[in-house]
Design a protein around this nucleic acid. Sequence first.
DNA 1: GTACTGATTTTCT
DNA 2: GAAAATCAGTACC
Length: 202
Amino acid sequence: MIHPRAFYEEDTVTAAKNLLGCILVHSEGDATTSGRIVETEAYLRQDPAAHSFRGRTGGNSVLFGPAGHAHVFLVYGLHWCMNVVTGRGSGGGAVLIRALEPSEGVPVMQKRRGLNDLRLLCSGPGRLTQALAITGEYNGLPLNSGPLQIRSPDSISGIAISPGQEIVQTNRVGISKAKDLPCRFFLKGNPYISRGPARKAG
DNA sequence: GTACTGATTTTCT
DNA sequence: GAAAATCAGTACC
């Protein structure tokens, strides 16, 4: 099931929580790779750590476009990261996908990553993009059609999390500004979480 | 197991 | 010129 536009037009924080448990799918030719989203971070327009904070500049114009699109960007010169544009009306909000639990196409992902350990395949923003072969070409693509999609696994009253699954909310990781804001979310006890303070909290 | 360091390029000042 | 939403490898308990 594909999410309607309204799913992404919630506040960024709400969307970040709702995205947990959803499936990110990439289809490229014959190969389909996918994984369940288990960790996200919310970046708001007024957030000093967000790329959209300084307003619309060269590489972030997608953030000011319609919700439900992918924003793919390069960090540290060598790793791709993927955002989902959220919020209504060019708000500049986005949700960073930080970790996936591998689902379909595991052998393909292992090959792309050069690893066998499932826990290391997608447990980080730079890792999951490599595993799903997401690069700058996907910047600006819609997530309800095309090669890159986000699905709900089984709609359980609007929230795609299995019953009893708790969401943990903590501070963010890997940034130096406004890092104390509790805008990071992940599924409690899930082993496919990126490193950082959250690990021990699970 | 934890801690530290290098790689590499885009973007803004 | 400096900083950046990271990862993998090495050193050392």
